[in-house]
Structures are given as C-alpha cells and as structure tokens.
Design a protein around this nucleic acid. Structure first.
Lengths: 229, 229
DNA sequence: CGGAATCTTGAGCGGCTTCAAAACCTGTGG
DNA sequence: CCACAGGTTTTGAAGCCGCTCAAGATTCCG
C-alpha cells in the first residue's frame, strides 16, 4: 500500500462545483453548517431507495456510485472524486429516494448536510439549487452519451473511453504515463462490458505497448493508440 | 387521420409538474410571462448543443426528445406529452447547450419562456428551480433504469417495457385494449432494439393475440402476456 | 393508379457473453 | 522464509442473441 508520487500539489484548493458562484463570505458559512464524516472502504454511505435526507461533498478519497440490476450485478455509474457531491435530492422539499448506492472506495472524508439544514441553505443561497440542477443536467448528458456508446460503439471503444476518462479525473502522473487505480471488474462495469472482455482488450493493448497492467492498476502509455484496430 | 375516441375528458386541467407547489395566485403570473408557440410536425423545436435560451411546456400535442449518434442514428430519449417541460437549462445563469433535440410529433402548442424571463421567475419563485431539479433527478433515474434494461434484459423485455410505458402515458382507451400511436421505428429506438427485431417481436405477439398491429399503431390487448416465453 | 413510406421475412454472421479451469499475485501467519 | 488462502486475472472453447443486408409485401395518399 505505498502511495505513488503525485504531481499535483498536495494542498491544491478543493474546487467544489456545488459552491460555484458563491462568494468568500458565503462558502465558509455553508461549510460550517456541515458535519464531517469519514468512511472506511468498502463502507456503504447511502443506499438506493432510501429517502434522501443527507447531502454529501467529498473532501478526500473516492466513492463509487452504482445501481444494482435485478440479477444482482452492479452497474457503476460514476467514480466520484474530491469536490464532487452526491445526494442532491436532499434539496427537495418532499424527499424522494436516492437514485443509487454510494460506497467508499478507500478512506474517504466528507461534508454532510442534513435535510433540514440543506433546505435552509437552499432558501438562503438559491445558487446552491441552481448548481445542483446544473450538475444533474450534466449527469443526464453523460448518461445519454454513455447510452449512445453502448448502442453504437464496440467494447474496445467503450473501454478506451472509460479508461481515458478515469485517467483524466483520477490518474496519477508517472514518468511512463498516467496510472489509474482500477480493477478490471470495475472498469468492466464502467464500460458496460464483461470482465473477460476487459481482460482480453487490456491484454491486446499491453502486447502493443499501449498500456501496462498490474493488479488493480493500469498504466496508460499512449491513449491515442487504443483505438487503432 | 381520423381521431380515435378518447376516454379522457377533453378539458381535463393540464397538470404541469414544473408548477407543483405553487399557488393559484402564482401560476397565472408565471403563465402570463410566457409566449405561446405552435409547431407543426416534423418541425425541430430545439437542437442539441444550441445554447439553452428557451424553456418550453407542452400544452397540446407531443414532442420527441432525442440525441443523434455519430453514425447518424437517432436515440429517442423520451416522447414528451402535454404537461411535460423541456429546456430546464434555461434556468441556469450561465447558459449551457441543450442536451438533445426536440421535434414535434404532431401539431403541438407550447408555452415559451425566454432566458431572461426564466431567470427572473426563478428568482421570484425558487420552487420552479426546485421542480426542475426534481424532474432532472427523475430523468437520471429513468435513464439509469433504461441502461440497466439494455445491459441485462432481452430485446423482448425492453420492447414490452417501452410499449406498456407508452401505453400508460399516451395510450387511447379502446374497447379492445389500449392503443398507442407509434411507428415500429420509433418503438425500436425507445427500446434500444433494431427495427427488424421489433417487427418480429410484435409479429409473434400478434399471433398470440397479445397485440394487434396496424401501420403506425399498436393495440395492446394483454400486457401481462408479453413476457410469457 | 403509382410512388413513397412502412412493415415483413429469411438467411447469415459476428461480437460478446458465458462457462470452466487454470495461473497469477499479495498479504498473512506459522 | 515459506506456504497457503483469498481475491484477481487470464485463456480457451462454445454458443447465442440480435444485427445486418437484401428483397419483397403491404399500406397509405396524392
């Protein structure tokens, strides 16, 4: 469990899209209204269908947001990173259920607002709700695109997309390329492909020196060449 | 183009989810701020990527909301009905692009709010933004479920779902069952199945007296039996 | 009636999935 | 230090579902 060299400065100011457009006087007030909670992997943070009574922002760590099919398989909707929020439904006056289940991938620190608090904040700072709407629309676009890929792209293209996307959102810069911490199984779920197919695709790429694999990790060497036949 | 007997009363009060929680004093004000526009089929109302500067509510008619794949095929995201709204991004202070393209399926009357007006209304009636958030979260859930079906259900199950869903949202009650106005091609797109497969599935159902087909229409007789083998 | 749009039907195939089994890593405890 | 047990990854062989393509039948409408 050694932690690889990270190029990003350790103390970069965490950018939270949910706080966009709010000023330096307002954000601290909002943060102060939050509780802090830490989760150990693989702890479940929220469950699909449960009434949405808590809003979360990730400060450190990462969280898998997924849904479960009837036959028990998990579909990974998104791997959430620091600065991301989930539980937007908490802003609604009449609570609905969470859309998916969230699980800590590693030790994760979060800010948490209870429903009542979130409602008050929403009233005081309507921009929060606007930002939640913005994020939700963004997710709709993302899922529509993913759907599109599933219908009209090959497994290889989907894996390439999922991997490079992960790389840009959570990759470590290393001399040889960008390294991503992900298991084949999770990558498969993100790319809507099965486990074995991912293994074969990564295997082919490794032979062409496009990536290097090790357990739970992929080092991306030449993202461009992934789609070359 | 005869119009079939509709059981629903002609003058049922149009329920608009976007106006939920707003009072009888407020809704007329909001409506009064809108322009009215009518579109003839198959007119394009908004285009994907265009900056979202107009919010629409359908009063009469119906609208297909879809995205287009790289290879030019349309993926029908939703057939919108009276009371439904689209163009929520108009509420945002910094406009983003529309997520998809909207096309009138038949002659369609709409209410329209321009960006500036929508922004003012959002400030005066924050509930509007909350409702837009609610609807967006609902869409996310819908697309997640659709994605799930695509990954883990058969073509037949998906067509069954798409057809019954259409039936409940836009079906006409007839003595023999519920009739849906939809072309095979559109049903195929909604169910994420190809044209020919839909034809075969409907053909099989017709032989089992589960549905009756005619051009551009499907009469659903026994929704339960659709999934029987 | 003719032409365009819609729908049907068949044959063939191919990309993934499924299933089974083996190889491989990694941390643990003796 | 080694061996073992767990999770993870690989590989092969087989099969199938739904797609593609081509052609024809049907319906609708001017």
């Amino acid at each position: 469990m050694h932690s690889p060299v990270t190029i990003c400065p350790v103390t970069k100011p965490l950018s939270v899209a949910l706080f966009k457009g709010l000023g330096n006087h307002e954000i601290p007030v909002i943060r102060a209204a939050a509780a802090k909670r830490t989760f150990e992997a693989p702890q479940i943070i929220i469950r699909a269908e449960e009434p949405a009574v808590r809003l979360f922002v990730i400060e450190v760590g990462s969280v898998d947001y997924y849904i479960v099919t009837n036959d028990g398989r998990e579909i990974l909707l998104r791997r959430l990173m620091p600065g991301n929020a989930f539980g937007f439904a908490t802003f609604l006056s009449e609570p609905i259920g969470y859309l998916g289940t969230a699980r800590a991938v590693r030790k994760t620190q979060t800010l948490v607002w209870e429903h009542r608090v979130a409602r008050q904040l929403a009233e005081t700072y309507p921009r929060l709700v606007e930002n939640a709407l913005h994020a939700s629309l963004h997710y709709i676009a993302m899922y529509a695109k993913r759907h599109m890929r599933l219908v009209s792209n090959t497994a290889q293209e989907r894996v390439a997309y999922a991997l490079t996307n992960l790389g840009s959102r959570s990759g470590h810069m290393l001399p040889g390329g960008v390294e991503v911490d992900i298991k084949n199984e999770d990558l498969a779920s993100l790319a809507d492909v099965n486990l074995f197919t991912v293994s074969r695709i990564l295997g082919a790429w490794e032979r062409q020196k496009v990536v290097s694999k090790s357990r739970g990790k992929v080092l991306i060497r030449c993202p461009e060449k992934m789609l070359a036949a």
